[in-house]
């Protein structure tokens, strides 16, 4: 918190007033485009189908929880929540762990094929997951993981690869080499340097990776549908699909399911974000 006063000496600047005005205009736009959809979804989850369709802005005539009731009757929401949480959080922990190791080596060590390996791994960013259904299914099937949570964790960890590597590698690269050298002189081994020196000051990158991995795995729909078949392995966002199928047209529970599905993510995001930002104040080492 002490650092806070340190970062805003600019406030005393005259031009800052202009900057602030322009800045707030942008932020206002940001707020508008971000919050408005959420509010609309929230309102709609209390309206009837007819109200949703007939008027965009109207408030629900007689707000009701019917949508939420139908949504939770259709699927076992608590169980699905736990499934989603298991899958998304395991994916996040595994991804951050294994990709931070790889990113560190790729950022810091000189060895043959370094750029080739990085280039290869980064290519994963370019492979459209929708087009890989068939081979991934046969892999998962061959491993005997079809219809398990492990299958989803494995696949989502794979999907998180490029993003994590990118974020962490570019962060590791910007850490001054002197830090490691100092630790090495004091006798720290390779792993100790990574674990005790590099990781603690890389929290911003680890956190960004963690947040994005968590959100992406939480929201994934296609593989969640294709790689599972039992109710216990179905994730929470799939609940929405019950209400968007072709012959069905029940918007109220669909929006209710959507609210139930995104509320935990928003909560987790806000909590994590606060933690990260707090811990980051001490970590300003660059420049």
């Amino acid at each position: 918190m002490r650092a806070k006063t340190k970062t805003i000496p600019l406030l005393r600047d005259k031009t800052f007033a202009i900057y602030a005005v322009l800045g707030y205009i942008v932020l206002l736009f940001v707020l508008l485009v971000s919050i408005a959809p959420l509010i609309w979804v929230l309102l709609s989850s209390f309206k009837t189908n007819n109200e949703i369709l007939s008027s965009a802005f109207s408030l629900p005539h007689s707000p009701s929880l019917v949508g939420y009731r139908i949504a939770s009757d259709t699927a076992n929401i608590p169980m699905r929540f736990l499934t989603s949480l298991t899958v998304a959080s395991s994916t996040t922990v595994v991804s951050v762990f294994i990709y931070s190791m790889a990113a560190y080596v790729l950022a810091r060590c000189e060895f043959k094929l370094r750029n080739a390996i990085f280039g290869l791994l980064i290519c994963s960013l370019l492979i459209p997951s929708n087009a890989m259904i068939q081979p991934i299914y046969s892999t998962i099937k061959a491993l005997g993981l079809y219809d398990t949570k492990f299958a989803l964790i494995l696949v989502y960890t794979g999907f998180a690869m490029a993003m994590c590597l990118f974020l962490m590698k570019s962060y590791f690269q910007s850490i001054p080499k002197e830090l490691e050298e100092a630790a090495t002189i004091e006798g720290a081994g390779f792993f100790t340097v990574f674990w005790k020196v590099i990781l603690p000051i890389s929290k911003p990158a680890l956190a960004s990776s963690a947040i994005l991995t968590f959100i992406n795995s939480w929201n994934e729909l296609l593989y969640a549908l294709l790689l599972t078949s039992k109710e216990v392995n179905r994730t929470l966002p799939l609940t929405m699909k019950y209400f968007t199928s072709m012959f069905s047209f029940n918007f109220t529970p669909m929006f209710a399911a959507l609210v139930m599905c995104i509320a935990p993510t928003i909560l987790i995001y806000v909590l994590l974000q606060e933690q990260i930002m707090e811990s980051m104040v001490a970590g300003s080492v660059k420049g």
């Binding site: 932020l27 940001v30 959809p37 959100i215 995104i262 928003i266």
Partner: peptide, 11 residues
């Protein structure tokens, strides 16, 4: 604002 901006990406 920082948290709010993330919401559309969480959805």
């Amino acid at each position: 604002v920082r948290s709010a901006f993330m919401i559309p990406n969480i959805i």
